[in-house]
Design a protein around this nucleic acid. Structure first.
Lengths: 185, 185
DNA sequence: TTTGAACATGTCAATATATACATGTTTAAT
DNA sequence: ATTAAACATGTATATATTGACATGTTCAAA
């Protein structure tokens, strides 16, 4: 597995970065499909360095503050490209705490159920709006060979996911609100 | 956290089950939103038993084969219901290896990209068909207070997720196939 | 009667992840 | 001058998860 390894190699393949910058990426932009804390990133970088897949140069800010700017090596790039080409079976559907709750929702009264769903809905709509605003920065589909193409398609995927969740919640709330149940759909 | 704990309690709240049966649930029906191997389930059951949240009776099949049929205790039910009512902030979007790959897809030639996407698409469509077949067993929305209501809404969620993924892949393949890129949408 | 699938329960080791602990610098604003 | 936010790098502990190891029984079909 070691997916974090390849996530890091992929980012360093785009451009040299420090551990701090990687951590930021993993907590903002990349958070739509991968994330990690700095407590996972620093040890992984050390490991990659031991394996000869990355190198670093030390940069000094001010008087003494050191930052290690990592870049990928030839060997690292080969490893990354090899990974990028394989492993294409679909993954297990991800775990989802809210769906687990909803699976057991018959134990909740209808008002509580709807409240929970409405609460989720609000948060997902908010997230969706943020993503759509980001998407406006793309007046057109980026060049297929540029980094931005990847940025764009995962962003589109994130938007579609949020829309799907909102639609699902609406459907579920519909089932909980109507006084008598009819046909599904 | 301890979500597995509550997933197990929730199932045992529906009806008494053995570890083996729980493992089966977590690898088939529930797999759309939670899963666990028996290597995680047996230790957790032991723990829940130590905590007084579950009890078991030993059943014998044939001559000697023993199975522990666990049931939830009053204390366990209270704990479960308490959990069911709280913790409603939306979770981080789940990690997704394929999206990570697609994020870096500019490093792949267009043919390989489309192949990968088409491969994923086929698998997701297959999964979608299975789910839709399962959904046909529900001629109408189940009673809102029955177990089957939960089964049904998470099944609908699973179907919508698969549909979303297929739509996303179609969109992405569209971007990769056309000779010249136009407007997005 | 033998064989394979399903039943049944466990442990162990390796990874992965989350949260907290721990320390210090630089920069921009007040 | 002080303060707060952002920069910067690490470690430690606890928990979660995966996959392999380990062992045996029962049942139905060939």
């Amino acid at each position: 597995m070691r997916t974090l390894k390849y996530a890091i190699l992929g980012l360093l393949n785009r451009k040299p970065m420090t551990g701090y910058e990687l951590a930021k990426e993993f907590n903002y932009e990349l958070a739509e499909f991968w994330y990690a804390n700095h407590s996972q990133i620093y040890p992984e970088l050390k490991k990659l360095h031991n394996e000869g897949l990355v190198e670093f140069d030390v940069e000094i800010s001010g008087d003494i503050l050191e930052a290690k700017r990592y870049h990928i090596t030839e060997e690292g790039k080969d490893d990354f490209i090899k990974w990028l080409h394989k492993d294409v079976k679909i993954s297990k559907t991800p775990k989802d705490k809210f769906r687990l709750r909803m699976y057991f929702s018959n134990e909740l009264d209808l008002t509580t159920r709807v409240q929970m769903m409405e609460n989720q809905r609000l948060q997902h709509v908010k997230r969706l709006n943020t993503l759509m605003k980001t998407c406006e920065q793309y007046p057109e589909v980026p060049e297929r060979d540029s980094d931005r193409f990847g940025d764009f398609i995962v962003l589109r995927g994130a938007i579609m996911r949020q829309e799907m969740i909102v639609a699902w919640l609406d459907e579920c709330m519909g089932y909980c609100k109507v006084p008598d149940l009819k046909e599904k759909e």
